[in-house]
Design a protein around this nucleic acid. Structure first.
Lengths: 344, 344
DNA sequence: CTGAAAGCGCTAACAA
DNA sequence: TTGTTAGCGCTTTCAG
């Protein structure tokens, strides 16, 4: 018991503790779970024996009977993005504080892997799953229709599909950034949008951009919009396409793409911000160390994770209908943008 | 049974399946586990019922009896570093392929949180834990001495403490990078080292640097070494300290610090690489989009994770003594370095 | 090949 | 306050 007998390791069970302490297993269970009163005399005795024997409760057995594994599942499409790390961190922090642990799977944004993950989560009887989604297909719909575990989506608003969601206000992010550029006097504002499959940070930021232009009475030019995939390389390529059309400012749906864009522009001999203003989204650490420093939109990714975790655990307690929570953002102005005169 | 009765959800068990299929639960178990032969007639029947009822096996119950939760625990100090994401991804990939899932905890590099995590992992009866360590204290030693679950360390060589480890060859990374700069003719090579607590990427890369200088017959100057903490800000600050001593090249223990260093140097009016060569380590995506593009050391972080996962699961099968595996690296030469003449 | 039955380690009535 | 006991859902002998 907690001793290597040959190669086999036999671990101490509640029974061993009970026997050694001269009490019933129920009593031991009670001091562990603090669920029912136990005389302080026995409690002391039991605690001592637990320490002596190095007893560690078997959470698996407990889970079987309580029908809760005190863990929450997280499905992410990518881990390489530092944003994933930040909100995941938020989930973990909240989970840990509540005595839950996190089971992590990576989907590469593929529906079949996501479904597989949902299945694993169900097998492991997690108490809730947080799903960093890419899109919502018919397959998702039919599968999730009778999924017995609370699910919250993160990053995409799936409330219309009945899935509670926690998001950044991507439409507003695009709108706010573009309005800011307009206010500085820019009229030819280009946009480097993200992959449309990632409907929210891709599509909604673009929509926000369009709305701002519309409100300003500016007709959108198709040639001033390019679509990347959130990599720096794609930002570089998009800038290459955009530059010939003479934008005075460019708004990229992510800092990574903004960085690629700045890179291309510099190479092309364009001075930033004198000849071209640039804005990104995400507020990566690097923004302050670029030359010029990059203006961007900042939000609290950790908060997104924390909120999602709180929500999914609450759903486990009480039934409430789907809602969509959002985490605020704000502009961070640095040196990559400038005001321009009336004419261009 | 997989049906919402009021608010309570009762899930289908193996018993329900057995009853509906008109067989014993043992038979159902056998078709699930493929452990013993079952007549194809019954098997078909059972499979059909499983589908009809939407039965999902309870992995918790299975774990209790098999004494294996088919999951592996991962303890990381930080998630914000993109490197964490990469090797974690490697772990997840391998785990998934082997039918395991990943339980993740974040320690912030604090010993007490690490110990807590190890405890949680034990309670959950994971089959192995992968520990991205920061340092090995006495507390770790006494705690791990009779820890009943296989542990492998990642990023630090704890083989001397009896813990199998998977690492990058940090000494060699520092050595190779420095030798390369020496070969280009540099004699005043500065180093921005990392936090010494993170003994390996901090200390060992510095050691490698020193060794290369020694071998080249160059006396190390204390003023040419500054210590950062792997953030860009710290790289910036270190460069500020280093510059007055007139290095012709600087080797930073991470790309992030190299970026901060480049930033300061540019601001100070130093042209890179004409007046100062810069090298980093990590080969972040950004390296190719800096101006100039950053020379660095590349390694396969995913491979580190995969190797660690493979190792820890193997330990679960067979007892083998502690070993230290390493993942190779290579120099990536870009525009931030240049050859210099005989005199400086 | 199949079924009955004995647990895995623990919690939660139910008695005492 | 404490102990006895019946399972949680599943795997696995052990007999058929």
């Amino acid at each position: 018991m907690d001793v290597r007998r040959g190669v086999i390791i036999v671990s101490v069970t509640i029974k061993d503790v009970a026997k050694a302490a001269g009490v019933s297993i129920a009593t031991v269970s009670r001091v562990l779970g603090k669920t029912k009163p136990v005389s302080s005399e026995l409690e002391m005795k039991v605690r001592q024996v637990i320490k002596e024997l190095g007893y560690v409760p078997n959470e698996v057995a407990r889970s079987l009977i309580t029908n809760s594994s005190s863990s929450i599942g997280v499905i992410v499409p990518k881990l390489e993005y530092s944003v994933s790390g930040s909100w995941l961190r938020g989930v973990e922090r909240f989970a840990r504080l509540q005595g839950y642990s996190v089971i992590l799977t990576v989907s590469d944004g593929q529906t079949d892997k996501e479904i597989e993950s949902f299945n694993v989560m169900q097998q492991k009887r997690v108490d809730g799953v947080i799903w960093s989604a890419v899109d919502f297909s018919e397959d998702h719909g039919t599968f999730l229709a009778d999924y017995p575990i609370p699910v919250v989506a993160v990053g995409q608003d799936f409330e219309p599909y009945g899935i509670p969601s926690v998001v950044f206000q991507n439409g507003k992010i695009g709108y706010d950034a573009t309005r800011y550029l307009l206010k500085l006097g820019h009229k030819r504002i280009a946009m480097i949008a993200g992959n449309m499959r990632d409907s929210s940070s891709g599509k909604d930021r673009l929509e926000g951009y369009r709305k701002a232009l519309r409100e300003a009475g500016i007709t959108e030019e198709e040639t001033l919009v390019a679509v990347g995939d959130f990599t720096m390389d794609s930002g570089y390529e998009c800038m290459k396409k955009l530059l010939p059309y003479g934008p005075t400012a460019v708004f990229a749906a992510s800092d990574t793409m903004a960085i690629g864009a700045m890179h291309y522009a510099s190479q092309a001999g364009i001075r930033i911000p004198d000849e071209l203003s640039v804005m990104g989204v995400d507020n990566l650490e690097i923004c302050q160390h670029l030359n010029p420093t990059l203006s961007t939109v900042d939000y609290d990714a950790g908060e997104l994770g924390t909120t999602a975790a709180r929500l999914v655990l609450k759903m486990d307690q009480e039934d409430s209908k789907a809602q969509c929570l959002s985490v605020p953002h704000k502009l961070v102005i640095r040196d990559s943008v400038r005001e321009i005169g009336g004419c261009y």
